[in-house]
Simulated assay, not measured.
Amino acid sequence: MQSDAAMRRPSAFARHRLTLIALAAILAYAVFVHYIWGWSTIFAEWRGIGYGTVALAIGLLVSTYFVRAWRLYDYFPRQTGGRFIELFHLAQVHNLLNIMLPFRSGETSFPLLMRTEFGVPLLHGTSALMVMRLLDLHALLAAGGLGLVLESENKLWPALTWLAFLLAPIPAYLAKGPVLRLLKPKLKGKIGRILEGIEDGLPATLAGLLRAWVVTVINWGVKVAVFAWALGLMGVAPIAASFGGALGGELSSVLPFHAPAGVGTYPAGIVAGALALGAPAGKAAVELLGKAAVNMHLIIMLSALIGAAVSLLLNGLRKLVAGR
């Protein structure tokens, strides 16, 4: 008969589920890219841009995944303390699922994975995810707005407006206490318990919010700057249009109408954003912009694959060192 310890031991799938999900997602992603575009076509396009430039852009994008994982690590210190590599691995699986599944349905994997891997209650994880997505959207708009400031002739008022928007999360957080004190006496029973769960997922202190906010701004600032730089190298001009393209593409991935793997919607977002902020609308210019948008999308997709592969490697090394 099996011992009690052996019977309580999780199955092989349960122990390695994140790794298996990540491997399946990476394989599906790679096959999908080959089916839609063909890897040989992609590499031919990147040869014209320069492999060194593409590698630098991908390296910078992958570095932002570590920044985002640290934001989670700081947001859930009690549950994730001392387990950064495992959390980074979870974050990359969530990122792949989020990219591949349509209509942002991949977001639902985050609270489920956090509950399974770190014991975070579903409502807590969902509430925290909502806060982080609001911070993402705010930082993304702020990063895109920087392009407008740089392009404006009289920079004083645009810069002051941009700064006020950048600091907006602070007064919004300070309003949390009065709003919750107003709602709590009026909401009882199940709704009251839901409100408590939502409150539990909000930053406990202003310092906690500021850390999450600063890391979010750094993350999206780097991403949008890299996107705008890469689009500029691909011929997208002026600089405001490059920022607009970066903003449009990322907004298409943040908003609910995201297509599977961003096919169609992400390049369309880049084109729309660039045209809205001053890119030429002539036939030749739009064709160049469309080509740059597809190339930028592929760079982002490859960075997601590499980020997931790095997380698998680090998690495998962690298990090897731990003797598991």
Rank of each mutant, 00 (worst) to 15 (best):
N95S: 15
S303N: 01
L146Y: 13
V294P: 06
H16D: 12
L255E: 10
V321I: 13
A268T: 11
W229Q: 01
P102H: 04
Y73P: 02
W70Y: 15
A268M: 11
H124S: 10
E45Y: 11
L210D: 02
I306S: 04
I306Q: 05
T216H: 08
V217I: 15
K283M: 12
Y173G: 00
A274N: 08
G282C: 09
A240S: 15
G59M: 09
I194P: 04
I85S: 03
H34A: 14
D200M: 08
L202H: 02
S3W: 10
K176H: 10
L60C: 11
S303E: 03
L20F: 13
R181C: 00
S105R: 01
V31G: 01
L90A: 12
A281Y: 05
L206A: 05
A292G: 01
R9T: 13
P77L: 03
V310E: 05
G323M: 05
G235S: 11
V217E: 13
A225D: 01
G262N: 06
G208P: 01
A57H: 04
A14G: 00
G201T: 01
K190D: 10
D4E: 14
Q79C: 00
T80Q: 05
G232P: 02
W46A: 04
L148E: 11
L141A: 13
A293T: 00
I218Y: 07
M100L: 13
I270K: 03
L134G: 13
S252C: 02
Y266A: 08
Q79Y: 01
I26E: 07
P171L: 00
L156E: 09
G201P: 09
G273C: 03
G235C: 11
T126Y: 12
F118W: 05
F103P: 03
T53D: 09
M114R: 05
S252K: 00
A279G: 07
M130F: 15
K291G: 10
G316M: 06
A128H: 03
L160E: 06
A143D: 11
A308R: 05
E199D: 14
I58R: 05
A272I: 07
W37Q: 12
M296N: 04
L255R: 08
R47K: 14
A268E: 05
Y266E: 01
R17F: 14
V149T: 07
L289N: 02
A164C: 12
L288N: 13
A172P: 01
I42K: 07
R193M: 12
F66A: 14
S63P: 08
L210W: 07
L233Y: 06
L60H: 07
R104A: 07
G307W: 08
R211H: 09
S127K: 06
